[in-house]
């Protein structure tokens, strides 16, 4: 070999791939949107979008499907970040779908997580979005390990795992007929550790609940349940103040914190690198139901 060729670091490579995917969405789709929840994965997505499109504006609005059960710190962060970037934020809420009667809860305190699909599909129809860019990662769950980067959804928003489009090289096919749409996942190939390393490298700001803080909780089964208006203690349970942080943020009723004293990014990275429990295993109360839980929800149009 005549010269040393610089190798991209793994973060540079992952970032380059993610930028390419976002630009392909912009190049191939007419009405895309970027899902932004204020969570750490979607915060990385915003930085990738800046690198992909600046100095121009993003060629898509930001969209959040609000369950109405989000931590207020996260919602504040979401609004502030969208304003700082000067990008358009579209928020649609589950409450509106409930008023319309398209979401019917079996009980008032039921987890609203899986009902997000309904509002999401209504939002897609309202704006005629033909592609939603999401921050899902293949390391999160078994069903996701087999999902394409450009994932086709039929006119009911359904994913058919047995009938996916072949995806070769970096030649993505985002073509759809009217009523169908694509989901594009630019950080498919990232792991939880990659996300934290990227947040550190890019000095990205996060909602405060990602860092260790003291919060009233109860211990229920093997897990920690944060005590909120929506998730009160049951009779006989002892409420204690514990030092915790969230590894993932979502609907309050199904997102649990982990015990931790990691109050900065370096400590979180050290904890993540040495952790023995997977992200969803630790913190998503809804994935434990069955091995096939995620596959089932994705078929129904969940992201």
């Amino acid at each position: 070999m005549t010269q040393t060729v610089p190798t991209l670091s793994h973060l540079d490579w992952l970032e380059a791939e993610a930028i390419q995917i976002m630009r392909e969405v912009a190049g191939q789709c007419e009405r895309p949107a970027l899902l932004f929840s204020g969570g750490k994965d979607s915060i990385c997505m915003l930085r990738i979008a800046e690198k992909a499109f600046r100095p121009a504006k993003f060629p898509f609005p930001l969209v959040h499907i609000d369950t109405g059960h989000n931590y207020p710190e996260v919602i504040d962060f979401r609004d502030r970040r969208a304003a700082e970037l000067g990008e358009r934020l579209v928020v649609r809420s589950l409450e509106d779908s409930m008023k319309r009667g398209t979401i019917v809860l079996k009980s008032p305190d039921e987890s609203r997580n899986r009902h997000q699909s309904v509002t999401l599909l209504e939002t897609i129809a309202e704006f005629e979005f033909d592609c939603l860019i999401g921050g899902a990662r293949r390391d999160e769950e078994k069903a996701r390990a087999k999902e394409r980067i450009f994932s086709f959804r039929d006119d009911f928003g359904q994913w058919d795992p047995k009938n996916q489009r072949p995806e070769l090289w970096d030649l993505y096919n985002a073509r759809v007929h009217k009523g169908e749409h694509m989901r594009a996942f630019p950080i498919s190939n990232w792991t939880e550790l990659d996300v934290w390393q990227y947040i550190e490298r890019e000095k990205l700001e996060l909602p405060s609940i990602y860092f260790a803080h003291t919060r009233p909780i109860v211990r229920r089964g093997n897990g920690i349940v944060p005590i909120t208006d929506l998730t009160p203690a049951k009779a006989g349970e002892e409420i204690i103040d514990l030092q915790v942080r969230f590894r993932t943020v979502g609907d309050i009723s199904c997102t649990a914190p982990v015990e931790s004293d990691a109050d900065n990014i370096e400590k979180i990275i050290a904890e993540t690198a040495g952790t023995t429990i997977s992200e969803r295993g630790a913190t998503r109360l809804d994935d434990q139901a069955s091995e096939a839980a995620m596959e089932q929800r994705k078929k129904e149009g969940y992201f």
Partner: peptide
């Protein structure tokens, strides 16, 4: 029935 992607890292390489 389909291609699955898995990830690991040795610290020096992903």
């Amino acid at each position: 029935i389909d291609v699955a992607y898995r990830y690991f890292s040795t610290g020096t390489r992903k």
